[in-house]
Amino acid sequence: MDELELLKKDWKNQTSEYPKLSYDEIYKMILKKSSSIVKWILIISVLEFAFWTLMSFALKDSKGVRSFDELGAENILIPMTVIGYAILIYFIYLFFRNYKSISATDNVKILMENILKTRKTVKQYVAFNLIYLVIATFVALGIEIEQNEVVRAKIEEATANGDALMFYAKIFFFTIVALGAAIAVLLVFYYLVYGLLLKRLNLNYKELKKLND
C-alpha cells in the first residue's frame, strides 16, 4: 500500500484525538494580541523611520550644524533638508501601502511576496539614508574646508610646511573610517534583526520559487 494512502486512512480516523476547545476558550483567544512576523516588521520599521527622523533632528541642533549656519551654507543645507523630508514621506507612504496589502487570505506565494515587498521598502529607505549620510558628510567636509576659518588656517599652515597633501589625505582617511564604522555597525544590526526574523520566510519563499522555475 502506498505510504501516503495509509497515512490518509489514519489521518481521517483521528478526529476524536484532537483537543476540543470550548466556545469560551476560543473567544478568549480572539481577544489576545498577535505576535506574527508582520507585526514585528511593523514595529521594527516604525522604529527605523523614527530613528532616522530623530537623527536628522538631533543633527540639526548639534553644534557642528549650527556653526554651518554661520558659514552661510543655507543654499546647500535647506534643499538637502527638504529633499530628505520629501523622501521620508514618500517612503512612509510606500511602506504603509505595501503593509496594507499583506493579507492572510492570499495564497502562500503572494503573501510572502507582499511581506518581502514591505520589507524591501524599509531596506531601500535605509540604503537611501546611508547614501544621504555619505553625501552629507562630504558636503559638510567641503564646506568646512572652504569656509571654516580654523580649518583654513590649518590648511595654510600645512601648505607652508609642504604637508598640504598629507593634511587632506588624513581628513579623508578619518572621514571614511568613521563612516565605514558607522555603516558596518548598522549593517550588522540589520543583518541580525532581519536575518533572524525572516530566515524561515526566505527559506520557504526560495522553496516555492524553485517549484515554479
Binding site: 501516503l4 497515512l7 490518509k8 489521518w11 481521517k12 495564497n107 502562500v108 506565494k109 503572494i110 524561515r200 527559506l203 520557504n204 522553496e207 516555492l208 517549484l211 515554479n212
Partner: peptide
C-alpha cells in the same frame, strides 16, 4: 520542509491539485 508539509496536508485532506495549487500559488 514547510512547503512539502503543506502539500502533504492538503493531500491528506483530499484536496485536488487545482485547490492545492491555488492555496500555495503554484501551477
Amino acid at each position: 520542509n514547510d512547503i512539502e508539509k503543506a502539500l502533504v496536508f492538503l493531500y491528506l485532506e483530499d484536496k485536488d491539485y487545482k485547490e492545492i495549487s491555488e492555496t500555495l500559488g503554484i501551477t
